[in-house]
Design a protein around this nucleic acid. Structure first.
Lengths: 251, 251
DNA sequence: CGGGCACTTGAATCATCTCAAGGTTTGTGG
DNA sequence: CCACAAACCTTGAGATGATTCAAGTGCCCG
């Protein structure tokens, strides 16, 4: 009874064709007829709260997910039980791609804050892609970009110092916020220091000290999880100039 | 005149349908008619010598390459000029995938030893994939597996010690050799200590010391680049058991 | 045979980690 | 609304694993 209301209401409000994330997401480059067909596959489950799982490592892969709002972390669990964070995911980004070749999710995904997703049943997406070259190419593109993004992280973890890693991380987050229409200068991190440390291959204490240091250098102002980039150039220098964001606005 | 001979001869000898790498490579899962169509796209350029480039970072992406024999490294060049190695590539593996979303290669690839490849013009591959779902799905699968393989490397670089990294690396190489019909116990590394160090985010000296240490512990016998795994279990324990290869033969 | 390159080993240094204590914010129940 | 606990963050001091610098060996190729 009530169920119908609860499902339909957000479905109408968030059709791909009206979604502000269209250009960052799966429908990018699709004409409106194709987008409509994609839209029919998409389910929009109830929002998740901080800490809830979207999927777990080893679950059978049923759907790919596009982040609609909020943010997620994906992480792999070692048998010693401790997690290693593989990535943070903002609206418009796809989750579950690594599982596609194995039929099961390769990592767990959990919400860092209240968050919602679009779920796309994978087999139906693949069927549709078989008939819509434009969708298929977009899928190729997204997967390829994911490969090159992961490789940038390899670069980061390869031989950079704590300062370089954190500075690069912040610039990366900043430009991803900017792409989504938020401020590149000032933003709230949705993840804890512990999560950042884990992701960057450092300890919580080192992250904390490095934040203090960047602040003392005048590159940042830090207030708990609120970050303001005061001197972007300084930060970029510290990052080792390996990060050149020609595009990002100072919005 | 002579050109014709030189091109045709290897082309006949190495059609996908007769290639021993079929099951590891792009044609996996294709029926013979489809494989034939793929085969018609494939060019097989002259072999490369040690140190020669297959492509450079920033080159316009024309083809994907499948390693046919020998091995390659892919690496990204920082503007400070030093390289960061992103991966080592054995026969059957695809090169160039990260560039597909950008239209240009994101890293350089050079031969570690005399090596040959199959070149697949990317736009024609994409056209063909648009009409052959089985090929398309295989492409998805390969890209997805690449994402999850890269993520395993993130795990490795995240918080492992030098010993854990090198042990994991060797077990990984070993099982990849085994998949290709070579010995899992004894093999020649095609890359230098410097390359291994770079890849694992360590220094040359640390790699050298760690080899000595693993040898002293009785896990390995090392003679220059010839590695014999003496005590696989010991090596796996050192690797942190994060590496479980249920399948690999002791061939 | 000689020169160069790849590798090994040692000793000192340094960045990050570990351990430990203290502070601040947030949420909860009285 | 306050008191308290839990979670999160900061800072310090000492330990440690990897790096750097330096010397030396052995192998390959001309």
């Amino acid at each position: 009874m009530q169920k119908t209301k609860l499902i339909d209401f957000p479905a109408i409000k968030t059709a791909c064709s009206r979604c502000s994330l269209q250009q960052l997401c799966l429908p990018q480059g699709l004409n409106s007829a194709d987008m409509e067909r994609l839209d029919q596959l998409v389910k929009r489950p109830r929002p998740l709260h901080r800490g809830e799982y979207l999927f777990c490592q080893g679950d059978r892969l049923k759907s790919l997910y596009a982040v609609r709002s909020g943010s997620f972390k994906t992480y792999s669990l070692g048998e010693d039980g401790n997690e290693k964070i593989l990535g943070f995911h903002l609206p418009g980004e796809l989750l579950g791609l690594a599982g596609l070749g194995h039929g099961e999710y390769r990592a767990a995904a959990s919400a860092l804050e209240t968050a919602s997703v679009c779920a796309v049943p994978f087999d139906r997406l693949q069927d549709l892609a078989d008939h819509l070259p434009s969708l298929n190419h977009q899928l190729h593109k997204i997967m390829s970009q994911r490969i090159s993004r992961d490789q940038e992280v390899l670069l980061l973890l390869g031989d950079k110092s704590a300062q370089e890693r954190l500075a690069t991380f912040l610039l990366n987050i900043s430009s991803r916020f900017a792409e989504r229409g938020f401020s590149a200068r000032e933003f709230n991190l949705s993840m804890s220091r512990q999560d950042i440390a884990n992701y960057l291959g450092l300890t919580l204490e080192t992250i904390s000290r490095t934040f203090s240091h960047l602040q003392k250098d005048g590159a940042l102002e830090v207030d708990r999880r609120l970050i303001r980039i005061v001197d972007r150039e300084c930060l970029a220098n510290i990052a080792g100039a390996c990060f050149t964001d020609a595009s990002s606005a100072t919005h």
